[in-house]
Write a protein that binds this DNA or RNA. Structure first.
Lengths: 333, 333
DNA sequence: CTGTTAGCGCATTCAC
DNA sequence: GTGAATGCGCTAACAG
């Protein structure tokens, strides 16, 4: 690998000059600049980013920590982050936290020791206090999918309470009154917010919240199936079920179909997240959008703006959910 | 941030000694070692990995290039890679190639200039020759999902021809003779291999391959839907359709259901990949497995073994598909 | 077993 | 505008 030294010799200039044309901060005469460029060209010179990082104390890398890499959820987010950062010549180092406090903290340590210039975090297990403390440290952080008032300018989040409200409001507007709710793990803030929205919609329609019709599940397909089996075993009349995400909705619908129930004729469904898959099955799942990809993009832009001083970035931090009406829920007679 | 120098002063030893206890390559007396460890502890010392990389010419990072970050496919693979590498304290830098030759090459350049110690590539657009050339370069590469004879020891792949055969063989064993085939983009090798296997099974059952029943699609749900619409518009008798992946199968099934066809009573389906989602819809999709996560793990192990000289790693490079019989295909009368 | 001495490749003051 | 010198934090011979 050719180094900056080789280039300087070939171009007949000093090391410093070569460095200058690379970063074009300082003025260099056009003639010398051209000589350097030519030398770089013929030598096939590629700067050593490690050395650049050490000398400049800037690694040009940002760490991204997500709960998990698989599932329909984080892929789109990672895509947007990678695209945005890559076009600014920054690179993305990933780590998974698996919704476990120890692993999340460990990952943060890992990424920081890796010299990341900033961290984009989608974490669920660590405490608010931990994150607030972290935000005071030398490495800037942005939070996706989490709202902490004390550091709200570092949060990119979805208004989950509103989304929860919208989903149930839609179902109730269709005339349903016997509605079950399959929630995700209640230790997660967004899960509690969605549930809160659900209850608010119920209250607005004067439908009492029936705890026996609320099942706490795990956000996965199989969990949705289990939840539905349970609800069905209750032998209570249920005409609609609101699910806290699309994956559980899919699992729940599958169970209903197996039991000979028709969807939406016998029972209506609505999901949450608007992941791609359930749009292509039958019935097509009505849902509330979770623009996770947009949030990823925003987080990346925040970093570009705040950390790399890219001026022309505009950053929105709060996202509103949107209702997507398809064919999994129908008006009740 | 405390540096190695601070530690050495506090411990009353030389820089080199501190370095030694960090890497514990060389023997250091227990007493001095303890002094160093204590100093590190009280200073909260974290080694600067950038400096380590520059000095040792080893960045402890491996680049992973995939076609895309979203979709049901690469997530599980990334998960395994991250887990395997992370536990060896290596980090993962990701990039997306988007199945485009220019972007793939660009990403490779990007990762190499980032000082990656090795590259794990899941690429489809670049030529074999390019990869062969790359493999001669200074940065070791492993290929996932691709078999190139000249560098087969660097390939981790699935026997796609066999998988294609198994899927169709199963359908034919059920008595079907009017079977359509929805393939992925034919410029991809794995797609051609699966099709080849399909034809081999057909030949074995003396069922002629009907080109009009073959539709080239794009591996996506919507593409599967389009394909199915087309096949249905043919008004040819079709009792089964073999799909080159599960996503297209899902899209195709949805179309059939919308047209009032019952699956599998009126028309049978089989997919390919065994992604999680279609297991939870109705009917549950029969399919052929594509252990992409295992392949990811293997690629990571290859890197650990070949590049980081981790001895106790065993590496298998070739994977065989497996048939998963669920409920989307039935015996024909 | 431990200390000394060079760099790794580049950015960045300072002079000129 | 350009060059010389210094150092980023650490590893790796080489001595002792």
């Amino acid at each position: 690998m050719a180094t900056i030294y080789d280039v300087s010799v070939m171009a007949g200039v000093s090391l410093a000059t070569v460095s200058r044309v690379m970063n074009n901060n300082t003025k260099v005469s056009d003639r010398t600049k051209q000589k350097v460029l030519d030398a770089m060209q013929t030598l096939g010179y590629r700067p050593n980013t490690i050395a650049q990082s050490l000398a400049s104390n800037c690694s040009n890398s940002v760490g991204v920590l997500v709960s998990q890499l698989d599932g329909p959820f984080y892929g789109p987010m990672m895509t947007e982050i990678e695209t945005a950062l890559r076009s600014a010549n920054k690179h993305v180092i990933i780590a998974a936290g698996h919704s476990d406090e120890a692993q999340e903290k460990d990952s943060v340590e890992f990424l920081m020791s890796r010299g990341c210039d900033a961290l984009i975090l989608d974490v669920e297990a660590v405490s608010d206090d931990y994150l607030i403390e972290l935000s005071k440290g030398p490495t800037p952080i942005v939070l996706i999918n989490r709202y902490i008032d004390a550091i709200k300018e570092r949060c990119v989040y979805l208004e989950n309470e509103l989304g929860g409200f919208m989903a149930t409001d839609y179902i109730l507007s269709l005339g349903h009154t016997h509605v079950a709710y399959i929630s995700g793990p209640l230790f997660k803030l967004d899960v509690r917010d969605r549930l809160k929205g659900h209850k608010r919609a119920l209250a607005q329609y004067n439908v009492p919240f029936d705890e026996s019709l609320h099942y706490e599940s795990d956000f996965k397909e199989a969990g949705g199936s289990d939840a539905m089996e349970h609800l069905l075993s209750l032998n209570t009349p249920i005409t609609a079920v609101v699910c806290a995400n699309d994956q559980m909705a899919s699992g729940a619908i599958a169970v209903c179909l197996e039991h000979g129930l028709r969807v939406p004729d016998d029972i209506s469904f609505i999901g949450y997240d608007n992941i791609p898959f359930p749009q292509y099955i039958s019935p097509k799942l009505s849902t509330v959008s979770n623009p996770i990809n947009e949030m990823g993009k925003m987080a990346a832009r925040w970093v570009l703006q705040q950390v790399y001083n890219n001026q022309e970035m505009t950053v929105d931090s709060s996202f509103k959910p949107e209702l997507f009406i398809r064919t999994s829920a129908k008006q009740i007679d």
